[in-house]
Design a protein around this nucleic acid. Sequence first.
DNA 1: TAATTATATCGCAATATTACGATTGTTATT
DNA 2: AATAACAATCGTAATATTGCGATATAATTA
Lengths: 109, 109
Amino acid sequence: MGLTRTEIFTEEQNLLASLFKAMAHPARIAILQRIILSNTCICGDLVGELGLAQATISQHLKELKSAGLIQGTIEGVSVCYCIDPKVWKLLENRLGEFLGSYKGTTECC
Amino acid sequence: MGLTRTEIFTEEQNLLASLFKAMAHPARIAILQRIILSNTCICGDLVGELGLAQATISQHLKELKSAGLIQGTIEGVSVCYCIDPKVWKLLENRLGEFLGSYKGTTECC
DNA sequence: TAATTATATCGCAATATTACGATTGTTATT
DNA sequence: AATAACAATCGTAATATTGCGATATAATTA
């Protein structure tokens, strides 16, 4: 109990859910927005800008990274993060497909 | 501790995160897909089709409903669920805007 | 009215998430 | 080599999520 039964769902359903999950927190949305804004990467700026502790930011970055949404490369003392274009495109495609599959034509119940 | 600090984020960030959260589970993706497929609504069919207990399905439906993604109307003994077109459109717009704000032009770090 | 059918809700156990202080690495500077 | 700066990890507490059996509620049918 208390454990998501991924085995009973399709690859597609699990993939979409995991991508959504990675973005299902305002801090992670904020981080993504910040990275997108200054296309060139960032790092510990986030700690000052969002009002969260360094450990917390680092944890959120880790989740975004393990979902594949962002990449991190060591840049001297700090770490530079940026969007992974490939995964972002995949996200756009899958999401567009999913959302677009609903045509709000006929009125329902 | 252990509580998301929504007060430090923008309306937009919290909204996006909550919509993502509502879809951040394979069962809820499956439910949405199923509703979209047979545009006309459904109900307890889900219990037979997904391999989850009735109480669990009901709980997931509740979450989708409280996120505003679906509507439920009583239809005799059973309940008929369907997509809420307004919220779905809003979702498409906000999400498209968010995802589209990244232009994978220059290579980063 | 009683029985049936379909859903929702309650209560619980297992697991996951969120947040943070403290500590541990890493690299750069002195 | 010692120090400083930055980020990752550890450990922990508080809270949330997931799943299900059992029970409650609501509407139909016998």
